[in-house]
Design a protein around this nucleic acid. Structure first.
Lengths: 231, 231
DNA sequence: AATTTTTTATGATTTAAATCAGTTTTTATC
DNA sequence: GATAAAAACTGATTTAAATCATAAAAAATT
């Protein structure tokens, strides 16, 4: 009867460019003049938890993981694709360091916007601030869902959840080329690489997914949802 | 060498009345006219996840848990004491339902503020919005810390973390009367009641804490910190 | 004060998932 | 094209922590 309704928790869905629509021409100019574009190669670190947060990161193109550094294991909070803002919690007054680290899964292009410009815009433009609050709240909802997923679901549920999320939210297609290793999937689902391999094999044997090389296809979306809900 | 620096993750520290200081007299009036005071008895539910969020909750006095409903087990996101705002994620446009449930550990007094008034204030007063963003970011930082705690630390580490948090952040004293049962502590630390009892006994035997009835005293704060960091 | 209910406590057993140890396959590099 | 390195895979073993079973103590109710 009562299932756990926390699915697709690895990433946000809505794109977050809309906040910039709230700016006046003058304000847009201010953003333009206080930002730089940077290209990162696969595997590079965009920002490091604890370092000074001088800028907000806008991911123009690419795929990144946002994670808390841990010993011995990191904790991935989200994976984020194109057109999302990253590092918003850094605008918190009284803490000018990054809450988390960000690194790339694939070659990625970002715009770095001066954090003080961002703070200024929030103080002077209430509509912009309102949109930022929306983004923060959306991020929070996603984090809570993922929090639930990782603490309450078992291996199969977590694996199903991530695969559905990759399909539905990141690649927006039943079939996709996954630029992640089994080890990456382990980090993402908070399980060992061996468990990832075993469960992927089970899903494959049960005809829930089709795997060939880096390509993954979701064959039975409904059943995957059920596994994600119950396990 | 490299320890995990996520402690005291069960609750926020900073009190959040300061956002109301940003309001004009007129705006304060608007808040006053659109709020009601309600008293809840111990164990009562203040709001239910998924129900319509018509108001923001300001906890004037009491102690509450904020949690995600789960089957078979809930997930406590935070416990919150006096002078904190609860339910801010409800101001997210496009989702007018509560992200989580809130219920009381002890008799509590709250002020319920109309959510539309809140949204209006955010749109018209950028300084108020800025303070709200600060609160949201603080909540996020706390949630991430707790997320790490529950997914990466083992039983002893989680138990030490919660006890320190109760001492440092909630009761602000080495010794305190805990209005929670061992079962409640289990829900809070994401472990079984039996495990809580066993670990509490170990801590007691090792002279880390002193327990008599509902009273708990932290005897060795340093060692507790170390257990929280490493386990 | 007696009885019921709840909470705390303790030991034995089970279980989910990690770790370990090793092989095969794929990818990268010389 | 040969060699090295990384990634994928498989089975056996270990481990952390839950569950189960039961008892004792404390609190609540009659």
């Amino acid at each position: 009867m009562n299932t756990n309704n926390y699915e697709n928790t690895c990433s946000n869905f809505v794109q977050t460019t809309s906040c910039f629509d709230q700016l006046t021409e003058l304000e847009e100019d201010m953003v333009d003049k206080n930002q730089v574009s940077v290209v990162y190669k696969k595997g590079e670190t965009i920002c490091k938890q604890g370092s000074f947060a001088s800028h907000i990161i806008f991911l123009e193109e690419g795929l990144v993981k946002i994670y808390l550094e841990g010993n011995p294991r990191n904790l991935i909070l989200t994976i984020t694709s194109s057109n999302h803002l990253v590092g918003l919690p850094s605008i918190y007054e009284g803490n000018n360091t990054f809450l988390y680290s960000v690194s790339t899964y694939v070659d990625s292009k970002v715009r770095l916007i001066d954090v003080n410009v961002f703070k200024q815009l929030i103080r002077q433009n209430a509509n912009f601030a309102s949109k930022i609050i929306n983004i923060l709240n959306e991020n929070t909802a996603q984090a809570y869902g993922r929090f639930f997923c990782l603490t309450r679901k078992q291996l199969h549920g977590r694996m199903a959840d991530i695969l559905l999320c990759l399909s539905d939210r990141i690649f927006k297609s039943r079939e996709f080329n996954l630029p992640l290793s089994r080890n990456d999937l382990g980090e993402l689902t908070s399980m060992s690489t061996e468990s990832v391999i075993r469960i992927m094999k089970e899903f494959k044997d049960d005809k829930l997914i089709k795997v060939s090389g880096k390509s993954i296809e979701i064959l039975d979306h409904d059943k995957m949802m059920k596994i994600s809900e119950l396990c």
